[in-house]
Nucleic acid binder design. Sequence first.
DNA 1: TATGAATGAGTTTTCATTCAT
DNA 2: CATGAATGAAAACTCATTCAT
Lengths: 219, 219, 219, 219
Amino acid sequence: MAEALRNQSPDQTLAESRRRQIFLAACRVLARKSFHEASVKELALEAGIATGSIYLYLHSKDEILVLIAESMVGELVEQLPAIRARSGGDPRRELIEMMSTIIDVIDRYRDAFNVLHHEGRYLERRTEYKQAIVRASDPYRSAVADVLRRGRQAGVIHFFDALSAVHIIHMLCAGWAMHGLSLRGIEKETYKREVTAILEGRFFAPASRNRNGNGAAHR
Amino acid sequence: MAEALRNQSPDQTLAESRRRQIFLAACRVLARKSFHEASVKELALEAGIATGSIYLYLHSKDEILVLIAESMVGELVEQLPAIRARSGGDPRRELIEMMSTIIDVIDRYRDAFNVLHHEGRYLERRTEYKQAIVRASDPYRSAVADVLRRGRQAGVIHFFDALSAVHIIHMLCAGWAMHGLSLRGIEKETYKREVTAILEGRFFAPASRNRNGNGAAHR
Amino acid sequence: MAEALRNQSPDQTLAESRRRQIFLAACRVLARKSFHEASVKELALEAGIATGSIYLYLHSKDEILVLIAESMVGELVEQLPAIRARSGGDPRRELIEMMSTIIDVIDRYRDAFNVLHHEGRYLERRTEYKQAIVRASDPYRSAVADVLRRGRQAGVIHFFDALSAVHIIHMLCAGWAMHGLSLRGIEKETYKREVTAILEGRFFAPASRNRNGNGAAHR
Amino acid sequence: MAEALRNQSPDQTLAESRRRQIFLAACRVLARKSFHEASVKELALEAGIATGSIYLYLHSKDEILVLIAESMVGELVEQLPAIRARSGGDPRRELIEMMSTIIDVIDRYRDAFNVLHHEGRYLERRTEYKQAIVRASDPYRSAVADVLRRGRQAGVIHFFDALSAVHIIHMLCAGWAMHGLSLRGIEKETYKREVTAILEGRFFAPASRNRNGNGAAHR
DNA sequence: TATGAATGAGTTTTCATTCAT
DNA sequence: CATGAATGAAAACTCATTCAT
């Protein structure tokens, strides 16, 4: 790593490490309170820096949302090559594995993810942030879209509309983070298995087979 | 209508109609700004009443979230008997129709729904609101859980874990409201068709057919 | 006065009286500290209202400057008809009397005037305030410009450029408020007499009389 | 120049040159924003040094005001001997020439002058700065007072009170810097001519000549 | 019931100044 | 001498809530 940093100015390194510090602090604080309940003062305190120091690394409180997007997408993207390698060329397997990884990342930063998911919608409407948000989340959207496209080309994934399909995949992953009391106590692996089964077509019994009365869950 | 109200005290009638006024005003305001950007003053103005009058019908600003939950769930529940009647006894058809209706309601109050979905999580943590939120959303959760249970009993719907399944169904519906820029321009019906196809098992090609390279989308 | 207010809504009356309260408080506070040293909190406290209440009657702290301009110009304008009546139709006398009154008003709100004079320059550069400042000070500028114009027409006041002349008259009045330590102890009437003498042409001895060595001050 | 500096320690030379750098930077910045809007960071940046380095040459931000006073008065004082020489012994001519030079200096550093003129009043009240401000501006005050005194002795300049007279002369010069929108477009020379004419007694027509209806501007 | 002026705690953000390097 | 990251106090402004009318 020392090697990787050799090309960066010390300032850039410092800034990056401080931004990481702030991101992790935000995740901890957002587990306790909403974005609007959490004051900059509290975020800074949790990050171990002075209130004003936040503004050396961020232009505004709202930019924390951009920081969250960048950090989470970054962690996902890092793992994409390994996922692809593991999938043995089957886009279906690649999609399932990718979703599993997405759920893992979302689970790791669950509360920050929820905040980003909701508040990001308002940020997108403001011209100053729109570009930053889109740029930050693009690698994620693209990766999912790409697997789906390859799956369709190979004839193993079927969908009508690519944008809708990407969004639905996203919602199935996001779902893990978004339950309130209703999913309390469910294991993450249970959730993953359920989602996988749906995508693999085991949710509804086939109409033709219905008469057989084959009621065994998930053949 | 005068007849329908005859059993209620005049006070309850007025209160109900004012709450409806406030709910509809909140929907309009929340289309423009987030819950925290929208002030009570603005909500009252939009509802055509004085700032202070809000507190005659609501205990606090946060209670607007409870009001939103009650109003939306109420509108869904009204239609459940008709859906059931239309489904001809097939829980699969009933589920698809129910989801279509849920998406319609969510679409009608899209912004209020998003706010409720996000902020509700924080409300649930506060003991004063927990009960109210759960009570308000229970008819919705129950209705979905019930169809799934009947579908499983009939052997036509398969899932491992009931809570997860209910939640996933919810997320697939909620997904329609939660897209930001990414789904701009997609028709609601396109989205519904995509979701239905996934539940009906047409998303992944069956493993056996994979080798054939059958690339036709959605057989 | 009760009669004069009969046409105004109570709200307008309340707002006007609160604005007067704030203006007078600002004058007192600005005698102690500069505009930037004086916080809104302190201004409100001095006016006997809560911090936030300032914003019920003013859009921003900067609008206090507009309020000062309006209040001071208002007090001057009230007296213009009487001055004119007293002047017996001689624009020279009218100008001298008008300047005396201006100096009196400036003296009454000396510190507020200094602040307005300085900070107003920055306010003028901001489009949101430019119009308000110009509108507020226009009656003052116009009144001075008008006397000068009439004096020139009557052949009793001589100047090259009207704008410069108005500004110089203003500076001679403003001068009374702007001394720091240097004029400490001088009487206002002494200052007025000095200014009057200059305008009446007694400052420089006429070139022809120079040789006489007539050193008597102000023949 | 190397010769001229031979007597100074190298430190003083560096400090002097840095202070000049800072003064000129302040003039540029104060043309854009007020003293309170201009941050030390911006002043340092404009001067081409680091933020913290300002404090090697100045004890505080407020001391910039003292620096401005010293620098401007210094530039005026340099030219006093030449003015005196040119005036041929007539204090009236000397005063007019001195005012012309003062207006030139003020015009050169117009924005810095305005800031000094206003903020200086608050600095004078603080014991730590009072002496410095008085010491810095004294050569200016004294020079004007001296010409007036000589003019009075020679019987060619008439005034009642010396302090008032000095202040009025100052205000007439300062006036050039202090116009806002009202004097936009007026030439400096027009302004000087107007001021000179007033001091030379051509502003009001003599009472005796009034009847003649002599309306020619400035005989 | 209805109003909306009043409150003051709490928010985000800025910035003069310090000090380790 | 020079730097600029770090500090934390203080500022302007907002707004949920109350209450006299």
